[in-house]
């Protein structure tokens, strides 16, 4: 067996790939959220950012390919490892109860026990999100600035539910995922473990609040999202 196949076949190796892709996606979330938050600064800032992003075709292609690959790997590995993990115990228990005394939630709701569910919800949200923003499917958004498009989409009532659910699911997902990825790549030490846990939880909250803030704010303060179009798309 070659070392690479051996590595990729092993549970530890696959988790490593999960962790790396996960960390990469976390990084993407940070960038994405920072960009989106420009909406609160103003339509122009957001538009500028969008243009800058789209001005470099090659970079965008590369980034999107990487992102897509990371998502695909992450998702495929999630399904296969979950399936294998589930089947490592054919007969289940009548009763299970955690022995960790630092658990804030019952197992049914705990982030680490619901990674599949939060991941799936996140994925469904992602599909809608891509269809909204990338494919602009069904919105009729011609001749609008990026900020206007965004304002329109997030103000939609159906999107309130979908985007909020997605953001919260993702937040829960990463609140375990970030710390878990650190552990998986071997980044755990008495000195920083507590810090990693804390950062991971804060990150989860930021992701959940940050992304769901847009549709929520759009409902509460619709005027914030009425952007006046000044710039047209493309150079």
């Amino acid at each position: 067996m070659s070392w690479l196949t051996g590595f990729l076949k092993s549970t530890v190796g696959r988790k490593f790939v999960m962790a790396l892709t996960g960390l990469f996606l976390c990084f993407f979330l940070v960038v994405h959220l920072s960009g989106n938050l420009l909406l609160y600064v103003g339509g122009e800032a957001y538009d500028k950012y969008a243009h800058a992003l789209h001005s470099n075709e090659e970079f965008l292609m590369l980034a999107e390919t990487l992102l897509f690959a990371a998502f695909a790997l992450h998702i495929v590995l999630a399904f296969t490892t979950t399936w294998e993990n589930k089947s490592a115990r054919k007969t289940g228990y009548r009763k299970t109860e955690s022995k960790r005394d630092d658990r804030a939630f019952p197992l049914l709701l705990a982030p680490d026990y619901t990674m599949m569910v939060t991941g799936l919800v996140g994925m469904l949200f992602l599909i809608v999100h891509i269809s909204d923003f990338k494919l602009e499917f069904g919105w009729g958004l011609e001749d609008m600035t990026p900020a206007q498009k965004a304002g329109l989409i997030v103000s939609d009532g159906t999107r309130l539910i979908i985007y909020m659910a997605g953001a919260i699911a993702l937040g829960i997902h990463v609140s375990h995922g970030l710390a878990s990825a650190c552990q998986t790549i071997g980044f755990n030490h008495p000195k920083y473990t507590a810090g990693i846990q804390l950062v991971s939880r804060i990150f989860g909250v930021v992701v959940a609040l940050g992304f769901s803030s847009f549709p929520v704010m759009a409902q509460m303060y619709p005027e914030w999202f009425q952007f006046v179009g000044t710039v047209t798309t493309g150079h």
Partner: peptide, 26 residues
């Protein structure tokens, strides 16, 4: 199965073996 870092093992371990050792294995 593989490890998904739920740390239930550590809580159940009668010998107090910590998950830090899992990180070291990784």
């Amino acid at each position: 199965g593989g490890c998904s870092n739920t740390y239930e093992c550590e809580a159940a371990c009668p010998a107090g073996v910590s998950v830090e050792h899992i990180a070291r294995l990784n």
